[in-house]
Simulated scan of single mutants.
Amino acid sequence: MARLFFALLALPLFAAPAYAEFPCDELWGERNAIYDDAGYCFKTARGREAFDNSDCQYDSLEDVPLSARDRQKIAEIQREERRNDCLR
Rank of each mutant, 00 (worst) to 15 (best):
R83Q: 10
Y19V: 07
L27Y: 00
F6P: 03
Y40P: 05
G47Y: 10
P17T: 08
G39T: 11
F14T: 09
R82N: 06
E21Q: 04
I77D: 00
G47T: 08
L8M: 11
P65F: 05
E80C: 11
C41F: 04
L8I: 11
Q78L: 08
A45R: 11
L9G: 12
N84W: 09
G29P: 00
A20H: 15
F42N: 07
C86Q: 00
E76H: 03
A15P: 01
A45W: 10
L9D: 06
R79G: 06
N53P: 10
A7Q: 15
K73V: 03
E81P: 01
F5V: 15
L66K: 02
I74G: 00
L66V: 14
S54W: 04
C41Q: 01
R31S: 01
E81H: 06
A18R: 14
G29N: 03
R79I: 03
E80L: 01
D52M: 04
A16T: 10
D70W: 09
L87D: 08
L11N: 02
C24H: 04
F51M: 06
Q57H: 11
D25I: 13
R88Q: 12
R69I: 10
R69G: 12
R48K: 13
E26N: 06
S54V: 04
V64R: 01
I74K: 02
A10C: 08
R79F: 09
Y19Q: 13
D37N: 13
C56F: 05
F42H: 06
P65L: 06
C86A: 04
R31F: 07
R48P: 06
F51P: 03
P17H: 06
D25K: 05
C56A: 09
Q57K: 11
A7S: 15
C56Q: 03
A18H: 10
